[in-house]
């Protein structure tokens, strides 16, 4: 948190207001969870510029080709302006790369509640990535009937970050947020 040294009280108030407003914005493609709970909203700070206080919001893309970045940015700007914060700049942060591990417990619960299976923990590795030729195994359960008897339909779903599953118990299809 960067409170401006010249207006400490105002700066703190501002940053709290800005954080509260930014925390309300939902993901355009997974509107069941907020950008904050998705782990995409990285920081909200105030920079003291010559024209007054500037709200700087830092976001990170989930996937390189995430087509929702511009919408996220516009939604953030609009929400902050509506909250009475007219000067907003949205900046991108590429490192560290977004990980599905950053989805909060609240975000995971929201995903499950809306029929989307949350990601499992990501395996971290440093050297060459091993090839996986066998079937993908995840400890996934159907978000609707909680059966563990599920099958992978495709590793690529309707958005960049989801895979497609089918529940063998209740026969419903569902999306699973991929580990990345």
């Amino acid at each position: 948190m960067t409170a401006t040294p010249t207006h400490p009280t105002t700066g703190t108030d501002l940053v709290e207001r800005a954080r509260a407003a930014a925390a309300q914005v939902v993901d355009p493609e997974l509107p069941v969870l907020t950008l904050a709970d998705l782990g995409v909203l990285r920081d909200v700070t105030i920079e003291d510029g010559p024209d007054g206080d500037l709200v700087v919001v830092t976001v990170t893309p989930t996937y390189s080709g995430c087509p929702a970045m511009a919408t996220m940015r516009d939604d953030l700007v609009h929400r902050l302006r509506t909250a009475g914060l007219p000067r907003v700049q949205v900046r991108l942060s590429l490192a560290p790369a977004w990980s599905s591990d950053w989805i909060t417990p609240r975000g995971r619960a929201a995903l499950r509640k809306h029929g989307i299976s949350p990601p499992g923990p990501v395996e971290r590795r440093d050297g060459p990535v091993p090839l996986t030729l066998g079937p993908v195994r995840r400890a996934t359960q159907c978000p609707r009937c909680t059966s563990a008897d599920v099958e992978l339909v495709s590793e690529f779903g309707p958005t960049a970050c989801t895979a497609l599953y089918r529940c063998r118990a209740c026969l419903d299809p569902f999306e699973h947020v991929k580990e990345i």
């Binding site: 914005v25 511009a70 516009d74 700049q89 991108l92 942060s93 929201a110």
Partner: peptide, 29 residues
């Protein structure tokens, strides 16, 4: 709350806001 059903999709004006002016994929990097 952001998880209020009315805030999702339909009731959320912010979701349909467009018109900021920069498109730099490295904005702020």
């Amino acid at each position: 709350s952001p998880y209020d059903a009315d805030s999702l999709l339909i009731g959320d004006d912010a979701h349909w806001a467009f018109g900021t002016d920069f498109e730099d994929p490295l904005a702020g990097v």
